[in-house]
Amino acid sequence: MTISTLHPKTGEPLPPAIPAATLIIYRDAPHGHQSELLMVVRAQSMAFAGGAAVFPGGKVDDADVDFASHIIKQQSLILPTDEIAARLAAIRETLEETGLALGIVGAHDPHQVAEARAMAHEAISFADICAKMRWQPDILSLTPWARWRPPLLEKRVFDTRFYLINAGNVPMEAKVDATENKSLFWGSAEQALHMADKGEIKVIFPTRRNLERLAQFDVFDAANAHALDHPVEMVMTYIDERADGKWLCIPDGHGYPVTEEHLSSAMRG
């Protein structure tokens, strides 16, 4: 499955992009201060963002689209099929990568969640997993946060939708999948940025911009309210050539406090 769109300035068709989705997971901080976010560190061998810290997520599969069509008929949802498919992918990928069953009604038993994760790693469809476990995806528990799609001719172009979800106290322990990712950690957006500045983790350009935006808010409710005040529009990066070199930029108006970085320091994935 690929998605085609038009260049925001020229109006020309852009190369097809691979649809993807990621989940920004909030949990209550152990000591009641800033809420924490879950990030996974990708294996160095991965073709995209190898070695970088990212939010859990991955590609939208054809099976996600089929499941979305079924859910629309079953629940009479008015959301577009591609939107529901992206949310399903974010939920499914989070289960695979972290072992957390979020955005799912009925996923309370840790043993059942572990079984479902093993099934997902065996490439069993999320629809079949939910049917066996008698789970129901809670599509509306995810709040749209952003959508990024670089118009540049990268090696692999992703059209990635970001969602927020509140895990509260997270009754289950997150565990790395040890395949695509080598580790995971909880921390505030501010802490993640500090780790990146110290060289303890690497973050690609979209992740850094989203961490800076998230760092404006201490708790989920504040970030969620901000997201609802900024309806999602496609964020497209562009290169601005200046006297001091090339800068990688995004347009204003999407809610990001920082919209540019010198190309020499930007990690692009």
Score class of each variant (00 low, 15 high):
T98S: 14
A21M: 09
I71D: 00
A53Y: 02
A86I: 06
F217L: 07
L211T: 00
K175A: 14
A47C: 11
F67W: 04
P110H: 12
R268W: 06
A68D: 05
K175P: 01
Y256P: 03
P251V: 02
L153S: 12
M1I: 13
D229P: 01
D252H: 14
A223S: 14
Q191M: 06
L23Y: 03
G199Q: 03
H33N: 15
Q191N: 11
Y238Q: 04
R161I: 00
A17Y: 02
M46A: 13
E36F: 04
Y163E: 02
I18M: 13
L14F: 04
R156P: 00
I204Y: 09
E96D: 10
I24S: 02
Q74E: 14
V60T: 10
K155N: 12
H108E: 14
T143L: 08
A90G: 07
H194G: 04
R27N: 11
T2L: 13
M234T: 12
N181R: 10
R87S: 06
P137F: 08
L37R: 06
E154N: 10
A131Q: 15
A114E: 13
A127S: 12
S4L: 10
A189F: 00
A85V: 08
F48K: 12
Q75Y: 11
H262L: 07
Y26M: 08
A225D: 13
V157T: 13
V60D: 01
P80H: 07
K155T: 12
L79N: 06
I129E: 03
V113R: 14
A21P: 05
T94Y: 05
P206Q: 08
L184R: 09
K182A: 09
A189Y: 00
V40A: 09
V54D: 01
A123L: 09
A89M: 10
G269T: 06
M133T: 08
A101I: 09
A123P: 02
K59G: 05
E122Y: 01
D240N: 11
P16K: 12
V170Y: 08
V60C: 05
L14T: 01
M172P: 07
A131C: 11
T2I: 11
S45H: 15
F162V: 02
L164P: 01
M236I: 00
Q136V: 12
S141A: 15
A178W: 09
S69D: 12
T160G: 06
E115K: 11
C130W: 05
L214V: 01
D221F: 08
G57P: 08
V170F: 09
F185W: 10
D64R: 05
I124P: 00
W145V: 03
